[in-house]
Simulated assay, not measured.
Amino acid sequence: MRIRDYTPADWAQVWPIVEDVIVAQETFPYDPAWPAEVAREVWVERPPGRTVVAEEDGTVLGTAKMGANRPGPGAHVATASFMVSAAARGRGVGRALCEDALDWARRQGFAAMQFNAVVETNTAAVELYRRLGFTVLGTVPESFAHPTLGRVGLHVMHRPL
């Protein structure tokens, strides 16, 4: 598996991953009614942010986006988001994407990385982030409408770089 910068030609393989994740409504607070064009505008970061894909033998297994968490006085803290295809989950793709984002953020001079809205029931992601040094700073209760579990919390997670 290799992680590389996203190119516009990748959208044909990235969109099905993004669509599956947002339609499931289990891990991202994105509108499942978004057409591909809107999702692309939200997902693909403009410089100085970065979007990447994890691929193997020409098949995109996952994608990540990263950049400053906030502008101005908050621009020294990075953020990132990750999506992995259902077929590639459990193979280390999410970990590789997160490690790549952390390395990128360090190289860019960010002081920390913060995730603003990790769905607390997304236990695979929460545990991965903890193993990579993130801590849960707090949980906003009942702020995510899970399709089967009802309203669940969103963690704010942070780690210094």
Rank of each mutant, 00 (worst) to 15 (best):
N122D: 15
S81D: 12
A33K: 13
V21F: 05
V126C: 14
P141H: 04
V156L: 14
G153C: 12
A112I: 02
R131T: 14
G138Y: 04
R70Y: 14
E19Q: 15
V44W: 07
A125D: 03
A33V: 01
A36P: 05
A68R: 11
G94S: 12
P32V: 07
E120K: 08
M157S: 11
L132A: 06
G67L: 09
G49R: 06
L154V: 04
A75S: 15
E45T: 00
C98A: 15
G62T: 01
D10K: 06
R4M: 05
A24D: 13
N116S: 14
R4D: 06
I3F: 10
P29M: 13
R91M: 04
A111T: 11
W11G: 09
T121E: 14
Y30C: 08
P47H: 07
I22C: 10
T63Y: 06
V140A: 08
V77L: 05
A105T: 00
M113Q: 11
E120L: 13
D20F: 00
F144V: 02
P32M: 10
R46V: 05
G72N: 09
D20E: 14
E127G: 14
A125G: 12
R131V: 03
R46A: 15
V140F: 05
L132T: 03
E56Q: 15
G72I: 01
Y6W: 07
P147V: 03
Q13L: 06
V44Y: 07
V52P: 12
A24T: 00
V38P: 03
T27R: 13
V156E: 07
W15T: 01
V18Q: 09
V14P: 02
G153Q: 03
H158W: 15
V42Q: 15
L149I: 02
V53D: 01
V84G: 07
A87L: 08
H146P: 10
T135H: 10
A54W: 12
F144D: 01
V14G: 02
P47N: 07
G94F: 11
V52Q: 12
A80I: 04
Y6H: 11
T79Y: 03
H146D: 08
H146N: 09
P29V: 04
T7Y: 07
E19G: 03
V44Q: 08
R159W: 07
I17W: 00
E37G: 12
R89I: 04
F144R: 00
T59P: 04
V44D: 05
W104F: 07
R91S: 11
G153T: 00
P8A: 05
A105K: 04
A124Q: 12
P141V: 00
V52I: 04
N69K: 12
S143V: 00
A105C: 05
V18D: 09
A12L: 11
E142T: 05
V156R: 06
L97K: 06
V136M: 10
R131L: 09
M66P: 09
